[in-house]
Design a protein around this nucleic acid. Structure first.
Lengths: 206, 206
DNA sequence: ATACACTTCAAACGGTTGTTTGAAACGGAA
DNA sequence: TTCCGTTTCAAACAACCGTTTGAAGTGTAT
């Protein structure tokens, strides 16, 4: 689908790279494998992106720009409604990722790419993510602080750190639980999100 | 330290490989980098381990054999004591990993290697881990089931899955929280373990 | 001293990596 | 048609990969 001729060379490369990065990692997925999957010439990567490192960053940018926008949009909605709860806050954080992972055009594999970025100790990549998207976490942290005034700053950050870990790990489908054969991908993911919110809210409140 | 002459070639390779796998990943860490760090000849890896894949498995085996043994030992102690709680059960699971991560000889980097194994989609590696160490999780799951009889099997497995994710992520030090400058590594890790148990117990009970 | 198993070594193997090059193909404007 | 910027292409580059080889070194037992 993503390598079909109706997509531009640029988009075909991004789609194939995303899939191969998720499956094999950034180092192990070679540009020859990427360009073969995208059905474009090898030199097209360096022509359109300059280097492999730039391609990696662009794979993140393409998804994270919209994901961050949607998360902050929902955060603003929840804050404005006046009925902010831990659950609604977690929902604002998780639902955009859930929607992305249900996107037809390979959104689900991106969550695995994102989780790989945490496993990679690559400081360039971490700096890129922190510089460009760190403000999203900051805004959510402030909202959590408002809802959990009994926790001091240190205690709160510990819990948010653990919560983000649980969310990252689960949304990347790293766990043992496999989707049941009779169950659609959508239902599976929605159940996971529901369990995640329930579990994490309790942990934050504890 | 681990590359000092008092350690055997075999152990020096294992130590250097562990450190480089944690830092760069299994694919990106080359045998030439490993043998240079270990100060041994390149061919020593294939002489002592046969192949890079075997070396990777051996890096896991060296730590996981004892880690699994200690976890099951503590699980048995807790079960025997008659006063099993969620907290004591989580403590039995976490404390051996905590002790390992405080080990002088590079135990802390191994937790990062272990977390990488989850991020890797490598089916050979996952099968190796599941075949050789899956029984540990099985035994703990049975103990959790006993403590949470109100949860049906599916609900329980979801929560254990999420809990394992939080533990894996946190013990690998993937989070944003950095050790404070005036604080020892030991104190930092012990605080993390304490927060982890508190958070996870609440999530499981929720 | 001789023999033998174990270990280390430098060198080379074929294959793959990211990147560069210069020519060919393309497509709209003049 | 001619022109020109944009994009694609096959081919080559040096560098690095995991693995193999056969010789050199090592220490122990005979």
């Amino acid at each position: 689908m993503r390598d079909s001729p109706q997509f531009s060379t640029r988009q075909r490369i991004l789609g194939a790279a995303e899939a191969l990065f998720a499956e094999r990692g950034f180092a192990a997925a070679s540009l020859r494998q990427v360009t073969a999957a995208a059905k474009v010439n090898l030199a097209a990567v360096n022509y359109h992106f300059g280097s492999k490192d730039n391609l990696i960053e662009e794979v993140f940018r393409r998804r994270l720009d919209e994901l961050s926008r949607r998360r902050l949009e929902r955060l603003a909605d929840v804050a404005k409604s006046g009925s902010m709860t831990l659950e609604s806050l977690l929902d604002a954080f998780i639902t955009p990722a859930l929607e992305l992972s249900l996107d037809r055009e390979g959104g689900s594999v991106f969550m695995r790419v994102l989780a790989r970025a945490f496993a990679e100790h690559n400081s360039n990549l971490r700096k890129f993510l922190s510089d460009n998207y760190g403000y999203v976490l900051k805004d959510f942290a402030a909202a959590f602080a408002q809802l959990l005034p009994q926790l001091d700053k240190e205690e709160l950050y510990w819990r948010i750190d653990i919560a983000v870990g649980a969310l990252t790990y689960a949304m990347a489908d790293f766990g043992m639980i496999q989707r049941r054969s009779g169950e659609s991908e959508r239902v599976h993911r929605e159940q996971m999100a529901r369990h995640l919110i329930h579990f994490t809210a309790a942990g934050l409140r504890a």
